[in-house]
Nucleic acid binder design. Structure first.
Lengths: 208, 208
DNA sequence: TAGCAATATGACAACCTTGTCATAAGGAGA
DNA sequence: TCTCCTTATGACAAGGTTGTCATATTGCTA
C-alpha cells in the first residue's frame, strides 16, 4: 500500500508517477523494471519515490490492484442482464470480454501478461487467489448445467474449469497484437470459437 | 557452444560443473542463477568458468540442448512400434511419455518449467522452434485422421494442435510434485484422461 | 631438461541498483 | 513573522555481479 503522502499528492503529479510506472511495467517484466527509470520518466527525485512507496513491490501491487478493479468494472458491465446463462455461453462471453478489455487497455494486459510469463512471488500472492475464485465460480456453473442436462454427467468439473481458465489466459498471450487491432480481434474471437466448439462437441466423428 | 577447453576436461570435472549448473537452473529461473553459485558448488575458480564458457547463456543453452536430446531419446523409445497411430491415441501416449520423463528426470523438468514460467530471450530462441515443429507434426496427424473419418472435418486443425501443445506443457507445471511420486503420477494421468475425454467427445449432452 | 602451448587462478576494476539520511523548502496556523 | 509538521532533494554508502588480465602451473615434446 503506497504511503499517505502519495495519496496527498496533487492528482496531476500522482497520475504522472502512476503512468510512468504503468508504462514501465507494460514494457518489461517486474524484475527488469528499475525504480531509476520510473523516477526519470515521472521527474521526481529518488528520495521522493521512497516517500511515496516502500519499494518497487509496493508500487507494483498497487497497480495490479487498479487493473483488477478496472477489469472487474468492465466485466460487470458485460454481465448486466445475463442471468441464468449456461457454461458454454458464459465462456464465450468471458472470452470476448477479455479480448475487448485487452484492446481497450493494452498496457494493462501487457502488465498482466508479463506476470503470467514471468511468474514471481507476486504472481503467487495476487493470481493464485483470483484463480481459485474463478475456478469455483466455473465449477458451480458446470454442476448446475449437469443437473439441467446440458453437460454430460461424467465430465470432470474441476478439469473442465481449469481447462477454460487455462485457455482464457493463454490465448491472450499468444494472439494479442496491438499493432493490428482489427485483424487481431477477429483472429482471437475466431480462435475462441474454434476452441469452444472442440470443447462443446468434441473432435471424434460419429460418436457421442 | 562451450569452448573446446570445456570438452577437453576430464569427464569427472566436466560433469561436476554440469551438475552444479543443472542443480542451479533447476532451482531458480535463468535470471536468478548466479555464475558465482555455480563456480562455488563445482569448485572451480572464476577465471576457469570463462575459460570454458562465453557467459551464462552459453552454459544454459548447452544444458537445454542436453535436455532436448534426452527427451528425444526417451520419446523415441516410447514411440517404437507405434506406427499408424491416430491423433487421440498419440496424444495419450505423449502425455504419458511426458509424465514418465518428468518423474525420471525431475531436474530437467524443473529447468524446463522455469523456462516456461519465466520466459526470456532464450525461450524465444529455443522453444519457439520446437513448438512450430511439434505443431506441424500434430496438424499432419489431425489432417490424416480427418481423411480417415476419425476426426470431424470442420475442426480447425491448427487450433486443435495448439490446444494439445498448450495442455501437454502446462499440466506438467501445475501438477508436478516430486515429493509424492506415486500420487502425483496417478493424478497427472487421471487429469490427462479427463482432458482428452473432453476433447474427444465434448461436454455437451445429447448432441454431436 | 628446456621450451611451448594449453590451463588454471583469483584479485580487481567497472558497473549498477537500492535505500538512506542530513538538509532544504513549503505552507498553515498562531 | 515564528513555529511546527509535511514534503522534497540528491549525494552517497553498501552490496552484489560480471568479465578481465597478469601471472602461475601443468604437461607434453624435443
Amino acid at each position: 500500500m503506497p504511503k499517505e503522502t502519495f495519496f496527498n499528492l496533487k492528482e496531476e503529479k500522482r497520475l504522472k508517477i502512476l503512468n510512468a510506472a504503468i508504462d514501465q511495467f507494460a514494457l518489461k517484466p517486474y524484475e527488469q523494471v528499475m525504480i531509476s527509470d520510473i523516477i526519470k520518466t515521472s521527474e521526481i527525485p529518488r528520495g521522493s519515490f521512497y516517500q511515496y512507496f516502500t519499494d518497487k513491490e509496493d508500487l507494483y501491487t498497487h497497480i495490479l490492484k487498479i487493473i483488477n478493479e478496472e477489469k472487474r468494472k468492465f466485466l460487470n458491465e458485460t454481465l448486466k442482464n445475463t442471468e441464468k446463462i449456461n457454461f458454454i455461453e458464459l465462456s464465450k462471453i468471458l472470452f470476448k470480454n477479455g479480448v475487448d478489455f485487452a484492446l481497450e487497455s493494452p498496457k494493462f494486459i501487457h502488465i498482466f501478461n508479463h506476470l503470467l510469463t514471468h511468474r514471481n512471488q507476486i504472481y503467487e500472492k495476487v493470481m493464485a487467489e483470483n484463480i481459485i475464485i474463478a475456478k469455483n465460480i466455473f465449477i458451480e456453473l458446470i454442476e448446475k448445467d449437469k443437473l439441467n442436462g446440458l453437460i454430460k454427467k461424467d465430465i470432470d468439473s474441476s478439469a473442465l474449469a481449469e481447462l477454460i481458465i487455462q485457455l482464457t489466459s493463454t490465448i491472450a498471450i499468444d494472439e494479442l497484437d496491438i499493432e493490428n487491432k482489427e485483424t487481431s480481434y477477429k483472429k482471437m474471437l475466431q480462435k475462441n470459437d474454434n476452441i469452444l466448439k472442440i470443447i462443446g462437441y468434441g473432435i471424434i466423428k460419429g460418436e457421442n
